[in-house]
């Protein structure tokens, strides 16, 4: 618990540090009045065409979905992996090797086949 209190302090001090840097710059920097040209978004010295909130490739979305799947998988595997060593060396009381292996097997293989399915469907091709 002590650790998380210290991390809380760090969040506080880190935010003050970053905020302080920005505030210092705000106080020291030279500001000139902004004309219409000055605040234009950069587009290779041309007049910007339309808004920048455009539609983009759907592939980004699919990869984000896949990422979510794998990231959650790895997160859920962390507790399993933490006790893995203790279990295989018979130091964890009560948990048998076969139980752990069966769980890991089912978990990883469902994911693995999902991955292969995505691969076969051609999701992983970036054009």
């Amino acid at each position: 618990m002590d650790s998380y209190i210290m991390i809380g302090f760090s969040v506080f001090l880190g935010a003050i540090f970053v905020g302080g840097a920005i505030l210092t710059s705000k106080l020291l920097a030279f500001y000139t009045p902004a004309g219409q040209r000055k605040v234009q978004p950069y587009e290779c010295s041309e007049e910007p065409i339309g808004d920048a909130r455009i539609r983009f490739k759907v592939a980004f979305y699919i990869f984000a979905l896949l990422f979510l799947l794998f990231d959650i998988e790895s997160l859920l595997l962390f507790p399993c992996m933490k006790i893995f060593r203790a279990v295989v060396t018979d130091q964890a009381g009560g948990i048998g090797t076969s139980v752990l292996f069966a769980e890991l097997f089912v978990f990883i293989f469902i994911l693995f086949f999902g991955f292969i399915y995505a691969w076969r469907k051609g999701v992983l091709v970036w054009e």
């Binding site: 978004p41 950069y42 587009e43 910007p48 808004d51 920048a52 909130r53 455009i54 983009f56 490739k57 592939a59 980004f60 990869f63 984000a64 990422f67 794998f70 990231d71 790895s74």
Partner: peptide
């Protein structure tokens, strides 16, 4: 609100989440 920024951010977002795995 800049097209380069949006594309760059999207690319690096995709790259970073991929390699995070």
């Amino acid at each position: 609100n800049n097209k380069y920024s949006l594309l760059g951010a999207m690319r690096s977002g995709a790259q970073m989440i991929s390699f995070e795995i």
